[in-house]
Computed example of a mutant assay.
Amino acid sequence: MINAAHIILYSTDAEADRAFIQDVLGFAGVDAGGGWMIFKLPPAEVAVHPTDGPSSQELYFLCDDIEKTLAELSERGVSILEPVSEQRWGKLAAIQLPSGAKLPLYQPLHPVAHSLGEA
């Protein structure tokens, strides 16, 4: 059956964003050929929310301590696009990729599924 998920980020500066993911976020990767990097991600989960509008997808990176994570990323020169805001479901912020794209981060305040089955 399904054994993984493949997420694609479309970027106006793919080379810079790939370097950021590898060098700043520290994700290991493989070259799938011709410099097309594919990065190993932390454990993941998927949620399905109702909408009255068109179907869409969103990507968020989760962290255990959003203030600490943002401080560490700031020290590495990462721009914080949106400071921490308190949501009903967690603490939300966003950083900027080198291409200018927004990458949301959140610290969940709800049970998470990404670690189910781990000892």
Rank of each mutant, 00 (worst) to 15 (best):
A4T: 12
A5T: 15
A5W: 13
H6A: 06
H6D: 11
H6S: 09
I7H: 04
I8V: 11
L9A: 03
Y10R: 15
Y10L: 10
T12W: 04
D13S: 07
A14I: 14
A14C: 08
E15H: 12
E15K: 14
E15G: 03
D17K: 02
D17R: 04
D17M: 01
R18C: 06
R18I: 05
F20K: 08
I21A: 00
Q22V: 07
Q22R: 15
D23V: 00
D23C: 01
D23L: 02
D23G: 02
V24E: 03
V24C: 02
V24I: 15
V24S: 01
L25R: 09
L25E: 10
L25Y: 07
A28R: 14
G29H: 11
A32I: 03
G34S: 04
G35L: 05
G35A: 04
W36D: 13
M37C: 04
I38F: 04
I38P: 03
K40R: 08
K40A: 08
L41M: 14
P43T: 06
A47V: 13
A47P: 04
A47Y: 02
A47R: 09
A47E: 14
V48E: 09
V48N: 01
V48I: 09
P50L: 03
P50E: 04
D52H: 01
G53H: 09
G53F: 05
G53N: 09
G53W: 05
P54I: 05
S55Q: 01
S56P: 04
S56H: 12
S56C: 02
E58S: 04
E58C: 01
L59V: 10
L59F: 03
L59T: 08
F61D: 08
F61K: 07
C63F: 09
C63Q: 07
D64H: 13
D65F: 06
D65L: 10
D65R: 13
I66G: 06
L70S: 07
L70I: 12
L73H: 10
L73A: 08
S74A: 15
E75C: 08
E75A: 14
R76W: 11
G77N: 12
V78L: 02
S79D: 15
I80Y: 00
I80T: 08
L81P: 07
E82L: 01
P83C: 00
V84R: 08
E86K: 03
Q87G: 06
Q87T: 09
R88A: 10
R88H: 12
R88L: 10
L92E: 13
Q96W: 06
Q96K: 11
L97V: 02
L97I: 03
P98T: 07
S99R: 12
G100Y: 07
G100K: 06
